[in-house]
Simulated scan of single mutants.
Amino acid sequence: MLRRTCSTLIALLAAVILGTAAAPAALAAAPAADAPAVQPAQVRPDLNGLRVKGVNSPAVYLILDGKRRHIPNPATYNNLFRDWNGIQSVLDVNAVDDGGPLSDGAILGKSPSGPEVYLISNGIKRWITSPAAMDKYYFAWNKIVTISPVALYSIPTGPSIS
């Protein structure tokens, strides 16, 4: 009983500190002692390439590196993806570990002198290794921006996307 009460108080305190809407839920009846524990967020590489949103939330995420990456606004979404089709509504986007947001204005870029396409976000470029990877992530071929080789190669390189 004491453990349940402490858990409820910790959840309430976290909600107040973080300013989340979880405070009313923390005040709800405590779960039964035999109820399964809430699972922590997990890294889910099996979901890579999906675009997801919560059932009752407008926020859209890309699953990349097995983590959810918030797409900060429609303009950034439109820079990267073919269209708004195929976004999956899920009950708990928080079940996937948070990998931080894509940067506002993230783009797909390439040099005019090479075929490699990169996702450029958060100050790094990540090589998209194949047409299959472009399709898996639903990236838009017609939205690739040509960047001068000097500018492109001055951007630090992050892990490849496959």
Rank of each mutant, 00 (worst) to 15 (best):
F81A: 01
I71K: 01
I63A: 05
L62S: 06
I71P: 07
S57L: 07
D83A: 00
Q42R: 15
R44Y: 09
L80Y: 04
A41T: 11
G66R: 01
T76C: 06
L64R: 01
D83T: 00
N78V: 00
N78P: 00
V43G: 12
L50Y: 14
V60C: 07
Y77F: 15
N48L: 05
G66C: 07
F81P: 03
N48D: 15
G86W: 08
N73Y: 02
A59T: 13
F81V: 00
P72S: 08
D46Y: 07
L80C: 03
N56A: 15
L62D: 06
A41H: 10
N56L: 14
H70F: 14
L50R: 15
D83W: 01
G54D: 13
I71H: 02
G49V: 05
N73W: 01
N79F: 08
P58I: 04
G54K: 07
L64H: 04
H70N: 12
D83C: 01
L62G: 07
N79M: 09
R51H: 12
N48W: 03
N56K: 14
G49S: 06
A59D: 14
P45I: 13
A75S: 13
R51K: 14
D65E: 15
N73E: 09
K53R: 13
A41W: 09
A41Y: 11
N56Y: 14
K67T: 14
P40F: 08
P74E: 14
W84E: 13
T76P: 11
R68P: 10
L47P: 07
G54E: 12
P40E: 11
A59C: 03
R82A: 12
I63N: 08
D46I: 09
Q42E: 15
L62I: 10
I71N: 04
N85I: 07
W84C: 02
N78W: 00
A41F: 10
K67I: 11
D83G: 06
L50D: 13
G66I: 02
P72H: 09
P72D: 11
P74G: 12
A75F: 07
T76R: 03
L64M: 10
V43W: 13
F81L: 04
N73C: 06
N56S: 15
L62V: 08
P74T: 11
R69K: 05
N79E: 10
V55S: 14
